[in-house]
Design a protein around this nucleic acid. Structure first.
Lengths: 154, 154
DNA sequence: ATTAATCGGACTAACATGGTCTCAATTATC
DNA sequence: GATAATTGAGACCATGTTAGTCCGATTAAT
């Protein structure tokens, strides 16, 4: 179906939220779920898998929560997606060399290969420092727009 | 899940088969299903949707079957896929401008946009004449390999 | 102890996928 | 005109995936 799953989408939002916090600050699920508009219980489950995959570290008990285990710059968008969806391969024939016995006559294999490479290169080229920065810029623009609107009112 | 559906895969194989036939030659489902290793009944269903979408024309009765309605060069890989899967958008926010209210603060939208563009450009840049030609080349190489192997035997 | 948080997993409803099967319609051939 | 070969339309079904919810257990700060 060529669609990002909601689970992966939410994982990305969650990691982005953490990436935008001051370093080392513990955030808890409820906080993130509200800010990022994700159902709390679902987000909790997602963060468990993010924990198992080594992207976040958790603290239990009151004042518990989650922190990134590595610098945001070392987590790519692809990492986040594959953490939830598993490895991406557009077509079965791309799973590994020799998987598909039709390879020797099938001309489509190569097309998929390049399409997938193009796609993956965009995702690996984007990390959460970049995303966090882009989010900050967007937020600034938004407040600018609001100010301007208020100015016109008066 | 970022995966091509089997249905679309089979549609591609079917169209490729037709594209490789002499122009105007009618092929019937059983023939195609055997050559392309697709379950016959399923392929029949797929060709009905390909017919409705205007890619193939059908003839009933004995000696009936299917033919391409337009030159293979005018059918892109994307056309074939979207005929079965509907329009491709990697993420909901790409459905149309303004669909997602988070756009104004979400930094990921733009990444998806470029990733999808890259991907689609590969698929639109590949048509069935290209594929058919590539298949012929591959087939030739295969027979070469076989000949060589036979030569060594003697 | 209480309370606030994660951990782990069971559970579920809805939908998508990948088919099969049947019967009807069409048409070439004998 | 009967027969046989083909597509047309759609009902049907088993399985898997998605997008969650819910609950009880665990951990730790106060």
């Amino acid at each position: 179906m060529f669609r990002l799953s909601r689970g992966a989408e939410y994982a990305i939002r969650g990691l982005l939220y953490l990436a935008m916090q001051p370093e080392g600050k513990i955030s808890f699920i409820e906080e993130i779920s509200i800010a990022q508009e994700v159902p709390k219980a679902y987000l909790a489950k997602i963060f468990q898998t993010l924990g198992k995959k080594g992207f976040v570290k958790s603290y239990r008990g009151p004042d518990g929560g989650f922190v990134l285990t590595k610098p945001a710059s070392e987590i790519s968008l692809l990492d986040a997606i594959e953490a939830l969806e598993g490895p991406i391969h557009f077509n079965d024939c791309l799973i590994h060399e020799g998987y598909c016995h039709r390879d020797e006559m099938c001309p489509i294999h190569d097309v998929w290969m390049t399409a997938q490479k193009q796609f993956l290169s965009v995702l690996t080229g984007t990390n959460f420092t970049i995303l966090a920065e882009a989010a900050r810029v967007k937020a600034a623009k938004k407040t600018d727009r609001l100010k301007e609107a208020k100015c016109k009112q008066n």
